[in-house]
Design a binder for these strands. Structure first.
Lengths: 345, 345
DNA sequence: CAGGTCGATGTAATCGATTCCATGAGTTCC
DNA sequence: GGAACTCATGGAATCGATTACATCGACCTG
């Protein structure tokens, strides 16, 4: 592969001049410029990004460590992150932690070794020493979706509190009183917050959230299935389960189906995270939608701000309830959509 | 960030010795080794991968350019690629082409500039000059899923021919005679092959595939919707549509639903690519499953073989028909599964 | 016209690693 | 005891870029 020296030789100038042309430095004669450009053409020269990074100490690369690529929510997030980054002149390297702290550390270490300019993380746990060290060492970082309390890093996330309240109102209106939740890992902020928001909202209707109705999941489908089976085995099973993410909702659907039961008649279902497939499931699933694309873009902007020396602010966007049929038919069926009903199904 | 010089100073040895310890070269005294390791510890030193790559001319990184990350099939492929690569000591940088040749070129160029060791591509089109140049220049490359004819690069893919034949047999048995297909872009091998396989299979049953029953899609949901609406507007609409990928099937589902029609009664549906959501759609969708994980792993192995100087072989794996309910109830409902029926729904 | 400014260019240091080569100490063997 | 080796180590070149600094005309100005 041709290097800058070859171009210099071909054009009959020094490597410095070639470099100046390539980085369009003002002080280059038109003559030299055309000669260099011609040489670049004939040799098919492309600057070596590795060498450039070594010298300039910047890679124009962002690291993104997400909890689970197979989760459509994170896939969409990753996509919007890449788009915005590209628009700002950065590339993105994605690391998939698969909800495993050890894998998360592996990717963080790898990305740090590659000297990425900044890191976008959706932490799987309460924060490994490695990550905390990176923050302390001054690596530009931004948390997306989940975050680690007590760490001074901007957070870009959804506040689902209001939407959860809307959801509980909706469930209450449909006559449901025994509401259960499939929680995410307690080590994650989203795992804890969604339970808290749910409990609070229930409180507003004078309802309790007994321990038996809090199932411990791990954001994966299998755990949703397991927890739902536990619920169904209870002497007094819940009337509704609220899954704290879309994959656990899928698992819940599996469990109900495996027993030959039906949603919503035997058990109603709602989920955090709206994904396009929920429109087509049987029945379409009521869910809390996050402004995923906006989240990804905001996170990249905050990170790039940090990298380029600007403040870089936290952003919190509201979630939104999308009512479908998985919690029961609305009591007033044929009617124009109310503010709460923004279903696309 | 501490460099190898700092470590050398701290340990009281030369940088050469530090490097030798780190790459465990045999000729280092135990004494020196422990001193260096101690220094590495106290400084929290991590080798700079950028500098190392510049010197050794290898990045231990694979590039993966896929057609569309939001497509669950490719997401799963990407995941298995990353896993296998990690097992072999490589990282992966994913580029999402979004079915756009210009974006594909952008990513290929970017990856080449970063001097990745090898490239895994699922081409969006017939092959840009850029990609052909890269092959000619000797960049280790492997095609996954789709490929470019006439280019000497190993191909790892699914042969769906037999499964398509099974599908047509199934449809024929259910009494369907007017079968239509939503094709992928003609510029892709998978776009063409699936139509061909379908046509051939129809031929075996004495059925034709009229032009009106070949809808031109682009592997995105919206095109599936559009094409399906076209089919439904025909004076004599088809009884079945076979979508050449899962997203177009989703679009077809949308179109049918939007007209207040039902699957399979008004229009039956089958898809290429099986994804977990198909179990839960209304109705569950009959699909041709690809051995996606195995495909990703085989592709990585072939690529790493090439990189490390071994041959690197093409691999073709068979697809498999998974019968569900979207084409109609099997004529003999309560019966043990036949070889063709391997449904998980 | 001497001195200063400015624009174009080249030389060389530098980034952080790896690795060839030289050196010197310690062993082995005849 | 000296030649021949081995082993551990350090010095320095190298990878391919960027960039500070030096140089050298050409031009401007008083």
């Amino acid at each position: 592969m041709a290097s800058i020296k070859d171009v210099a030789a071909e054009a009959g100038v020094s490597v410095a001049t070639v470099s100046r042309v390539l980085n369009d430095h003002p002080s280059v004669s038109a003559e030299a410029r055309t000669r260099v450009l011609a040489a670049v053409q004939t040799l098919g020269y492309r600057p070596n990004a590795v060498a450039r990074s070594l010298r300039t100490d910047q890679t124009h690369t962002l690291g993104l460590v997400i909890s689970d690529v197979m989760n459509p929510y994170f896939t969409e997030l990753a996509r919007s992150v890449e788009e915005e980054a590209r628009a700002l002149g950065y590339s993105v390297i994605i690391g998939n932690a698969d909800e495993r702290p050890d894998l998360q550390d592996h990717h963080v270490r790898n990305l740090l070794d590659r000297r990425i300019d900044g890191l976008l993380v959706s932490p799987t746990d309460g924060g490994s020493p490695l990550m905390l060290d990176a923050v302390r060492a001054g690596t530009p970082m931004v948390f997306v979706d989940r975050w680690i309390p007590g760490v001074d890093v901007p957070v870009v996330r959804t506040d689902g509190r209001a939407a959860v309240r809307d959801l509980v109102a909706h469930l209450h209106e449909l006559g449901h009183r025994r509401l259960a939740i499939i929680a995410g890992p307690a080590a994650t902020t989203t795992g804890r917050e969604r339970v808290e928001a749910f409990r609070e909202a229930l409180g507003e209707y004078g309802l309790e959230l007994p321990d038996a109705y809090i199932g411990q999941g791990d954001f994966q489908a299998e755990s949703g299935r397991r927890v739902t089976e536990g619920f169904l085995d209870l002497p007094e099973p819940p009337e509704v389960v609220f899954a704290a993410d879309n994959l656990m909702a899928l698992g819940a659907l599996d469990a109900v189906r495996a027993r030959g039961l039906r949603v919503p008649d035997d058990l109603a279902l709602a989920a955090f995270d709206d994904i396009r497939w929920f429109v087509h499931t049987d029945p379409p699933v009521t869910a809390i939608a996050q402004p995923t694309g906006e989240l990804g873009r905001a996170a990249v902007r905050a990170l790039v701000d940090r990298i380029e020396g600007r403040p870089g602010e936290s952003v919190t966007l509201p979630g939104r309830l999308v009512v479908r049929r998985s919690c029961g038919e609305p009591p007033n069926p044929p009617q124009s959509p109310t503010p709460v009903q923004r279903s696309t199904s």
